[in-house]
């Protein structure tokens, strides 16, 4: 085989080029920390990375939803606790007004107490979170109950339970039907019950007081049940958050193994490429440094 001048330079040039390209690619991997710097580095990996990033984005959205749902449910929970306390206080007040030993002034005091409880219950039912009513169903901008001249309106919200998604197929309720707590299947809502109880207490009507106490029992049951639901939701939220974070870890790990370089092997590759490049350069320097011409006299 004849080795010609042009050929040896062309070969060494393209070999050096190739070695330089390999070194540049290895350096880029090490410096960027990414295995995929453009889709053609690994088309399937790049496409997987797209879905992986989207999955993480969606999981983060669920986590955000879970966090805000927790804040909202905390408000609902504390309002329900308050409602339960108030109903218990109303039961005590109404029961204390019963009996023939009570003086009129004592009965009046009990009636006033019941009226005060009714007013603060109204505040509890009209609780808001970031400007939307929690116990008004989907009518977030409408107060569930309003009071005009001491008379509380009927339920202004609706029965729609507003929920948010916490994952595919997993939801949590964030707005509640106030009427199902205040009235349920009873003929009158709690405000009417309290108002009637106050009247009964004032007049010492023990039959009406007995009926009112029964209705308060029902109301207490409904509020306790609602709070149990909220409590369950809290537990579920913790579970959801744990699952979301595990899922996120998994996806991140998969994504990292697709997108990121294994530093140890990347650095090894880089020093290998560097050695190759040095050798190619050294060969370039030596090519044509001697030939038969050197021996002509």
């Amino acid at each position: 085989m004849r080795i010609t001048f042009d050929q040896s330079f062309r070969n060494i040039e393209s070999d050096t080029n190739r070695a330089a390209e390999q070194l540049a690619a290895a350096q880029r991997q090490v410096s960027s920390g990414h295995r995929i710097n453009k889709p053609s580095d690994d088309p399937a990996g790049a496409s997987f990375a797209v879905t992986g990033h989207a999955a993480i984005g969606a999981l983060d959205a669920y986590t955000k939803t879970a966090d805000s749902t927790t804040s909202r449910l905390t408000v609902a929970d504390s309002m329900l606790s308050d409602i339960i306390n108030k109903i218990t206080a109303a039961q005590t007040a109404a029961a204390s007004a019963r009996g023939s030993a009570m003086t009129q002034s004592q009965r009046d005091a009990a009636a006033a107490n019941l009226q005060g409880i009714s007013d603060s219950l109204l505040d509890d039912f009209n609780a808001q979170f970031h400007g939307s009513y929690v116990f008004s169903g989907s009518k977030a901008t409408t107060a569930p109950y309003t009071s005009t001249g001491g008379t509380v309106s009927s339920y202004q919200g609706d029965a729609t339970a507003v929920s948010v998604d916490l994952g595919q197929g997993r939801t949590a309720q964030i707005a509640f039907d106030g009427q199902s707590i205040a009235q349920g299947s009873d003929p009158a809502d709690i405000f009417t019950v309290l108002s009637n109880l106050a009247t009964a207490a004032r007049s010492g009507d023990s039959v009406a007081t007995g009926q009112g106490l029964d209705a308060l029992d029902h109301a207490l049951d409904r509020a306790t049940l609602a709070q149990t639901h909220v409590g369950n939701s809290f537990a579920a939220l913790d579970d959801v958050r744990a699952r979301l974070s595990t899922e996120r870890l998994n996806v991140t790990a998969q994504l990292s193994s697709t997108e990121d370089v294994n530093m140890a092997s990347a650095i090894t590759n880089m020093s290998q490429a560097e050695t190759g490049y040095r050798a190619a350069l050294a060969a370039f320097g030596r090519i044509g440094s001697f030939s038969l011409m050197d021996y002509l006299k």
């Binding site: 797209v50 990033h53 989207a54 984005g57 969606a58 983060d60 959205a61 669920y62 955000k64 939803t65 805000s68 749902t69 909202r72 970031h130 400007g131 939307s132 977030a140 901008t141 507003v162 948010v164 998604d165 964030i174």
Partner: peptide, 21 residues
Amino acid sequence: IDSGLTQFFNAFSQLAQDPTS
């Protein structure tokens, strides 16, 4: 575009948490 899509849909998910905001 992938992150644009994710953020767009996430904005709707945020809106679902507080539709009147």
